[in-house]
């Protein structure tokens, strides 16, 4: 589906945008030794080539997820979700640019990444005894996760109106600069909105009032299937 939105892609194994979200890196601190994996972070490995406890390194989200579940590491909340960034978003969500390079490093995957991070929060009451005191300070508590969530919700609510208004403009005048500000999922929403708006406008102006003759339609459909068949055959023959 071309205009897939976050609701369809999130957690979908085959979705490209979801793969890109889980590629985002988080700063992690290991809480266990890993034998023979020292080559991942050569600067801190022990003599026998192990990755030792306390090593700080960047790991992609898809790796953090299962490792966190097994209490093998603690991760640091990305700056885009920390309190300073939350206050910026609270002040005026409309002007924040969701892209790399801005001051708080808001990523283009702000919402989906947040969705992945929030469930990783520690419940303070039954958090593991394994984690040391220092590490625990860094990790995400349940209260903070709730704040991140409410910040995500209010940000989306306040930015939605803007997306809706932009989708109402005709196709060309949303400048590239405006687009850069949007999160990837917001951009998908914008495209959906524009497609709808354009279909209404072009109907109203009778731009596509030509109706195909049934014979032409059938001929076109046949051409398409023939083409697909020939490609399939070519692939098999190769």
């Amino acid at each position: 589906m071309k205009n897939a939105s976050l609701a369809l892609t999130h957690g979908n194994y085959l979705s490209l945008s979801d793969i890109m979200v889980t590629e985002e890196k988080l700063l992690c601190t290991l809480t266990t030794d890993f034998h023979g994996l020292g080559y991942i972070q050569p600067s801190t490995r022990s003599e026998n080539g192990d990755l030792v406890e306390g090593t700080v390194l960047d790991l992609p989200l898809w790796m953090v997820n299962p490792m966190k579940r097994n209490q093998w590491l603690e991760f640091q909340l990305p700056t885009a979700y920390q309190e300073e960034a939350r206050r910026i978003l609270c002040a005026d969500p409309g002007i924040v640019e969701f892209r790399q390079g801005s001051r708080c490093r808001f990523s283009q995957n702000h919402y989906p990444l947040g969705l992945y991070i929030i469930p990783l929060a520690d419940n303070i009451n039954n958090s593991s005894l394994l984690a040391t005191q220092i590490v625990k300070k860094k990790s995400l508590t349940l209260e903070e996760a709730k704040e991140v969530r409410s910040s995500l919700v209010s940000t989306f609510q306040l930015r939605f109106r803007q997306i809706m208004d932009w989708s109402n403009k005709t196709c060309h005048d949303t400048s590239a600069h405006d687009l850069k500000r949007l999160d990837r999922s917001e951009r998908q929403l914008l495209e959906i909105g524009k497609a709808e708006q354009n279909s209404l406008i072009s109907w109203n102006q009778r731009k596509k009032s030509k109706i195909l003759k049934p014979s032409t339609a059938i001929k076109n459909a046949r051409l398409m299937t023939d083409y697909a068949d020939s490609r399939k055959r070519a692939r098999i023959e190769v």
Partner: peptide, 22 residues
């Protein structure tokens, strides 16, 4: 409704996901 239907429903879906995150 045609002018807004998909945008609204998908937007509400996303909002719902964010609200229920975790």
């Amino acid at each position: 409704l045609c002018s807004l239907r998909n945008l609204l429903t998908r937007g509400m879906d996303q909002l719902d996901m964010l609200k229920n995150a975790g």
